[in-house]
Design a protein around this nucleic acid. Sequence first.
DNA 1: ATGGATATTGTATTTGCTATGATATGTATC
DNA 2: GATACATATCATAGCAAATACAATATCCAT
Lengths: 240, 240
Amino acid sequence: MEHKMPLANNHISVDCVVVGFDGERLRVLLIRRIGEDSGEVFHDMKLPGSLIYMDEDLDGAAMRVLNELTGFKNVNLMQFKAFGSRDRTKNPKDVRWLERAEKAKVERIVTIAYLSLVKIDRALNKNLDNFQAEWVPLDEVKDLAFDHNLIIEEAMKYIRQYVEFNPSCLFDLLPRKFTALQLRVLYEVLYGKQIDVRNFHKKIMMMDYVIPMDEFQQGVSHRAARYYRFDKKIYNKTRR
Amino acid sequence: MEHKMPLANNHISVDCVVVGFDGERLRVLLIRRIGEDSGEVFHDMKLPGSLIYMDEDLDGAAMRVLNELTGFKNVNLMQFKAFGSRDRTKNPKDVRWLERAEKAKVERIVTIAYLSLVKIDRALNKNLDNFQAEWVPLDEVKDLAFDHNLIIEEAMKYIRQYVEFNPSCLFDLLPRKFTALQLRVLYEVLYGKQIDVRNFHKKIMMMDYVIPMDEFQQGVSHRAARYYRFDKKIYNKTRR
DNA sequence: ATGGATATTGTATTTGCTATGATATGTATC
DNA sequence: GATACATATCATAGCAAATACAATATCCAT
């Protein structure tokens, strides 16, 4: 968390739950943290986040964090919940780490949590290493700093609701060219249940904003699947 | 905003959008505010809200505000969005009022907004007068303090989404005994469009958690409508 | 040419939503 | 008491969307 020391408001932070999809599972972007607890060095992980600066609004702070981390601009960032329980900073481990990082006394911090759905393939080759960041499969996430496990749980609940309201966000998770299988597995992972292949195919055929391309998979040892793409303009016309 | 001066965190507040339904329109609970601006006394309105105390978490603070105001306990309070724009406190009128009320210097305040759907009939005869509170029809809400108009707008967007996900919240707005007409008008007001009477009737007949009672309207100058009631137990069984 | 693997397609059934017509029951009026 | 009027309640048909279920097509490797 290096920056040129703008004045920080040490009561309010933002945390970003950045979610990606690798074709099989959902992954969340986490940052490695090295700290010290009663003389022992420990390693664990946390969500990307930061105290907000005095001259910065919430959305701006979230954008900044995400940008510093992935280099992305213009990513769809959704505020989904504030976390302000008093025992967020219950663990002395977390408090000591934070006070060293921020060089200031901290008490209870309210954090505003943001959710972002991104394409792993684009993010993968950016500054991730510089930031000690890693795409961790959701079911392999261990104990995180602060209440970040809780924040991720709430983020997942939020996604499931949000998808129904705005299905286009699914395509933020997929590559620009994707197969019907990828899209189906994404649905299955999100809803936690199997979907009939044939009915699903019929369904995406009726979505006029999912465009079949003339391109097919290469070098697979079975019948090659067609690629599809998502057309945002058509989507906006038909939905709004 | 009288209280016995627990230590307040003057960076974070909660505001409650308390919504009721009078049978025709939605109403929101607002508090009268009297302030002074360049020598002139002004009257306007604001959402019920408060800075949070140091030993209080967000949900707790929202509960406290709502309880002080209406006497309610165990009301369903939903956090729906945080507002942290820097120009929330752009208007000097608001800043001066707040600094007098809180007896402390304030800068930017991030507020966590909560939504609550309640029965007007229960709330009506409580402490509303003591708190200078009033049920204002949504379409008659004037310019409010801070960004409270924006907060109400966002609250309404949130309700529309939330209803689809959890229709049971509609019954929080209705009296325990209600007619099919009341329920239908509530839908119409929320979605802003007319619903066919006959199809709507069929629809609520298929909801096994809407129970027809043996009681009918009294003293109306037309065929008396049947009363219905909402059964939460049955609802929870069928939905979850 | 054959087998293994995955992709793609068709048909019948059920269920839900929409549109519209007809009947029932209360009060007020003549 | 007969009639008009207003609202509540019940009924039916058509269309569209969701579900259940099985066969065929295409690519690669041998």
